[in-house]
Write a protein that binds this DNA or RNA. Structure first.
Lengths: 342, 342
DNA sequence: CCACACGCCGTAAACGTTTACAGCGATTTT
DNA sequence: AAAATCGCTGTAAACGTTTACGGCGTGTGG
């Protein structure tokens, strides 16, 4: 133990100066003999470089932070799974922040960039407030935002296109002959909630269906809330024939309630989720879901950040990831066992 | 920009020494007037403490690392979800390492503890080698291991009891009248693989069933491999009536194959998974699964680590989390729609 | 009126690196 | 043979904090 060896310890043992030790350890040109002595001493002592001291001097920590709203949400986990290897390959460590959807926590994270314990940040805020924007403008380290920021915000940005995503889903449902398409959304003051709500309205118009208040129910982005919301909706509109759910968790809740109510999916009610998480493929009936490319967005964000870390003064970039409708049994099913007759 | 303010900048502006600034910022006793001046200066400058410099001096980084085999595995994610808030509440940041089940990477993580960029480590190694143990003994920071280490290893340790877990499952299946209970396991040279394999054998003996080679198939801990393994098993033993799967992913693969083969679950074949991940509740039929308490283990590990960080020289502790059988439709089902009569 | 205590504060050292600069011996150039 | 060059090395400063120590001014007690 005894307070691990430092370059000073090595210098003494090898009979050279600490500068030489540092040079050897960093592979700078040095006489063979010196290299040998230093290496030998370092090995014997079991020396490991102190990353903190190095960071203080070099002003780089080789750490990057990822801040997400809710570590329990599989969509963020999908991003995380892509971000991690990209950063790792580039020699960065990943620091995780779960802000629990509290705006103050997000601001905190932004603020803490000033502490310089990370070289950059990838953040996926649920809501983007004035304060967010102000702090972004003066952030002390590069930031990549996953999610929409106002045009012109000087920040690298990766977006999903939930508008087109919802459109794909509604088109699909419409093509299947559904005409009473409900929407189960999350809070309207969140970025995704607002976007998906507006997109639903728009998509209905595009296929020539009227927008009806009673077909919309707002809850939260969780399964239990999904159940509650769908139960309410079902009571209000018993003959609803399709449900557009703002994420997969809500959709799973919908499946629970529909099953309990004796409605067949998709024959009586078709269900579409969003985010295309692992759960969509695992559920039964398997869930048709709009992939907003969580994985791709995570990857793109990590790559944008790395690029920015390398060439500091690029123009801010905007990457938009295209949505994709993954059709499964909850809309197009029938191939499945149960169902059909009786 | 201009290279953010430091305590020196503040000191100049407030007309005091850097020592005073530091004292004010740390809430040490100081004259009111000085406090006021320093605070004012700090505010105007938008000062944020440099965490790196602080860490260098104080020898604490307020960071903790979590190293897991595979960030794609929901069981680890469940741990992560519990670890994160516990650490956050205690003021620690979480640094993530996914070692991709490569032992060398795990050793690397252990080694890098010497870099002192974290105050402690929670690690869940897939295999525990001699090298692991050697490095644990000389680790430069507290480590908590999730998973089994040899008795007497001087390290805080959180274990699942997969032996009892498998036992619960086999008992359950036996009680349901199943007599040809197969096992689909992961690699035998991993800690969980070995444990679960042995436990299966033991549990069979306990209920008086013979152990038969042909009922066991080894694959890997993924869904695709689960499908392959179960397909093989089904060909070899067409009248198998239950499957004990070494994790939920394998079990989902089993459901896929059984459905495709026209076998009813649970009527023809009962299926049990392990880890009780989110997927188990989402699948159809919902999956009976042995919870090994991933969440509890993560939580316990985080708490052990925090405790150790506070009172350095405690005796190493061992926490064992009890398994729990979560019975769902894949063994006790029938309440579900389809099935029964053709 | 001196001694002492006490509350605040500034000076300086320390944490463990990296790196600019100057020095030094050996070799090459003039 | 003196001067210039070159390769290597050591000294010292710097990164931004925290903190031991001593000094100074004020108030109290003798």
């Amino acid at each position: 133990m005894a307070d691990g060896p430092t370059i000073t310890t090595i210098a003494e043992r090898a009979g050279v100066s600490i500068a030489s030790v540092s040079r050897v350890l960093n592979g700078l040109p040095t006489r063979q003999e010196t290299v040998r002595k230093v290496m030998a001493a370092a090995d014997e002592l079991g020396y490991v470089r102190n990353a903190v001291a190095r960071s203080l001097k070099s002003r780089r920590t080789h750490q990057v932070a990822f801040a997400m709203a809710d570590i329990g949400n599989p969509a963020y986990l999908a991003m995380l799974r892509e971000i991690q290897p990209v950063l790792k390959a580039a020699g960065y460590r990943l620091v995780l922040h779960s802000t629990d959807a509290v705006a103050a926590d997000e601001i905190d994270v932004l603020h803490s960039l000033g502490e310089r314990y990370v070289d950059g940040l990838i953040m996926s805020p649920l809501r983007v407030t004035e304060t967010h924007l102000r702090m972004l403008a003066t952030a002390r380290a590069p930031v990549v935002i996953i999610g929409s920021v106002p045009d012109g915000t000087p920040v690298d940005n990766v977006r999903a296109d939930s508008r087109t995503g919802v459109r794909l889903a509604i088109d699909h449902l419409h093509m299947l002959g559904r005409r009473r398409i409900g929407m189960v959304n999350g809070p309207l003051d969140t970025v995704p909630g607002a976007a998906r709500g507006a997109a639903y309205r728009e998509a209905l118009a595009a296929v020539g269906l009227p927008y009806e208040e009673k077909l919309v129910e707002i809850g939260d982005f969780y399964r239990a809330e999904g159940r509650r919301a769908v139960a309410t909706l079902l009571r209000r509109v018993p003959d609803i024939d399709a449900l557009m759910c703002a994420n997969d968790l809500i959709a799973l809740g919908a499946l629970d309630v529909l099953r309990a109510a004796g409605k067949r999916v998709p024959q009586d009610v078709a269900v579409v989720g969003m985010d295309d998480t692992d759960l969509a493929a695992a559920s039964w009936p398997s869930l048709t879901s709009v992939s907003l490319g969580s994985a791709e967005r995570g990857k793109a964000a990590a790559e944008l950040l790395l690029d920015r870390l390398r060439h500091g003064d690029r123009e801010p970039r905007l990457v938009t990831v295209l949505p994709r409708l993954v059709v499964r049994a909850s809309t197009a099913g029938e191939a499945s066992e149960g169902g059909r007759s009786s």
